[in-house]
Write a protein that binds this DNA or RNA. Structure first.
Length: 480
RNA sequence: GGCCCCAUCGUCUAGCGGUCCAGGACGUCGCCCUUUCACGGCGAAAACACGGGUUCGAUUCCCGUUGGGGUCACCA
């Protein structure tokens, strides 16, 4: 599935890549992967990775929307070189280029009205033929119209244009397919098509790595590049990420911003990094790939050409892996706010230290920070504990008597350790002629309020003698 | 609809003419470990879309069909 090899690097020398998101309120999963690939490519080749915010649409480009993107990038550890650029800063330069194109005969002023355009489009549709703008102003020998005008590119109509795409291979399009798109709007502002090309050139971008949805645009942009006589960048159009239904990932698929996975589920940045990397790219049978390995191994030829579906299950599995690898203190700090919300009070240093100590037992049982916090709350909940349904069921019948026996044996212990508590509980089971589980399960319910938890002797030690005995006592009191 | 792109297990992928009755991972299902749930270990089911070529030989190359996706603004 590798892309056909593209001979020779047309731009020898330093690599410059860029990520150019438009601020929509969050860092889109697909955008994050595009950013990742650009970052990786630049780092791999000792080049520079630039960030440019496409804030031409001023209405949408709020500070909050921009901050969300920068925040997401930092979270993933995708550091950009230098300050971020803002496309709106360069509007003057964009207009300048449009006028230069005009002077050199590669563009023309067009006074065609929106209505005339709409009429052309309608008749094209009625006759079931492809729509292509046909402006009378393309070749009008200096004649001028009335009122405001736009500047359109005088796109070539003969021959064809080919792009040697690093991912897609050679892609060719008939120039007749390209129409005279607008470069400068009637209010003098630049269109996206013009702005990207000018900015990429001015920023010295050598490799344009972006989503597949821009492949068609690339031909239009290349027309500007050629008209200006600028060096052509290397293009690499990576396939889009799809939802479970196979369509381009969008809001209707649910969470689509990386911060949602971070905040709601509790995904670790290294897990997201690894997952996104493996989505559409592979390195043999390697599954868990570190940041360093990624920089060492990443290459554009490894990027597949077909879209891939976002699979939450795999992300979660990977996240579980990274949780197990993460330092206990870091994890404790990460889940502290979640637990605070769950137990309804802030956690002090002792509480966080307790979480850290419990972490080795908690970690293997969670795939997300959300699950990790959920599994840890029993440590910090206030007495008397609420019992869930399964815990309540475990405490029915003869369980109460067994619990009382366990309480007595544990109370008599001189030393409160895993070994000592285990011995005590096993003695009760043996003396009563029941299986360990018949004693351990009610004990678990009493201590945690749940039917599942870390190993019961770990729980006993983590909670400590006083708290443990207290919790068991609470249940005995209820049983009467 | 025009144009462009894509096509290996349910999903992510390995495979770059013979090593493939197709390998790994997630998910699923068994079994083991076990005080619960996980983790871990072992095992199972599961794919080269179809049809033509090229070739001594196609999952790998070419063409077509089918299916899927993207894109067609004075949005970005």
């Amino acid at each position: 599935m590798s892309a056909s090899p593209v001979p020779g690097d047309p731009v020898p020398g330093a690599v410059v890549t860029r990520f150019a998101p438009s601020p929509t309120g969050f860092l889109h999963i697909g955008g994050a992967r595009t950013a990742l690939f650009n970052w990786l490519y630049a780092r791999r080749h000792g080049g520079r990775f630039l960030l440019r915010i496409e804030d031409t649409d001023r209405a949408r480009s709020t500070d909050a929307a921009i901050a969300a993107i920068l925040d997401g990038m930092r979270w993933l550890g995708l550091d950009w070189d230098g300050d971020e650029y803002y496309q709106s800063q360069f509007a003057g330069r964009h207009a300048e280029v449009a006028h230069e194109l005009l002077q050199r005969g590669h563009a023309y002023r067009c006074w065609m009205s929106q209505e005339a355009l709409a009429a052309q489009r309608a008749s094209a549709q009625a006759e079931r033929r492809p729509f292509r703008i046909e402006s009378e102003w393309r070749d009008c020998d200096g004649r001028e119209g009335e009122g405001p005008s736009v500047i359109r590119l005088k796109a070539p109509r003969e021959d064809e244009t080919a792009i040697e795409d690093k991912v897609q291979g050679r892609v060719t399009v008939q120039n007749a397919e390209l129409d005279d798109f607008v470069l400068l709007r009637s209010d003098g502002t630049p269109t996206y098509m013009l702005a990207v090309v000018v900015d990429d050139h001015d920023m010295g971008v050598t490799h344009v790595i972006r989503g597949d949805d821009h492949l068609n645009n690339a031909f239009r942009q290349l027309a500007i590049v050629k008209a200006m006589g600028w060096p052509e960048p290397v293009y690499a159009h990576v396939p889009l990420i799809h939802g479970q239904d196979g369509a381009k990932l969008s809001k209707r698929h649910g969470a689509v911003g990386v911060e949602a996975y971070r905040d709601a589920l509790g995904i670790l940045p290294e897990a997201m990094f690894n997952y996104l990397l493996r989505l559409g790219w592979g390195h043999g049978d390697d599954e868990t790939i570190s940041r360093e390995e990624a920089v060492r191994w990443f290459d554009l030829d490894g990027v597949g050409r077909s879209p891939s579906r976002f699979d939450l299950k795999k992300l979660e599995n990977l996240n579980g892996h990274y949780i197990r690898e993460a330092a206990d203190e870091r994890l404790a700090g990460l889940i502290a706010p979640r637990i605070a919300a769950l137990v309804g009070r802030d956690l002090d240093r002792d509480a966080i230290a307790l979480l850290g100590r419990a972490m080795p037992e908690l970690k293997p049982r969670a795939r997300t920070l959300d699950e990790l916090a959920e599994g840890a709350t029993f440590l910090l909940r206030a007495r008397p504990l609420d019992m869930d349904d399964k815990a309540t069921a475990l405490l029915e019948g003869e369980a109460a008597d067994l619990l009382a026996l366990v309480h007595r044996h544990l109370s008599a212990l001189a030393e409160w350790s895993q070994e000592a508590t285990e011995r005590a509980v096993r003695e009760v089971a043996e003396a009563e002629g029941v299986k360990l589980g018949q004693v351990a399960q009610p004990l678990r319910a009493a201590l945690t309020g749940r039917a599942t938890s870390p190993g019961i002797f770990d729980v006993l030690v983590l909670l400590g003698r006083e708290e443990s005995l207290g919790r068991i006592g609470d249940r005995m009191a209820v049983a009467g």
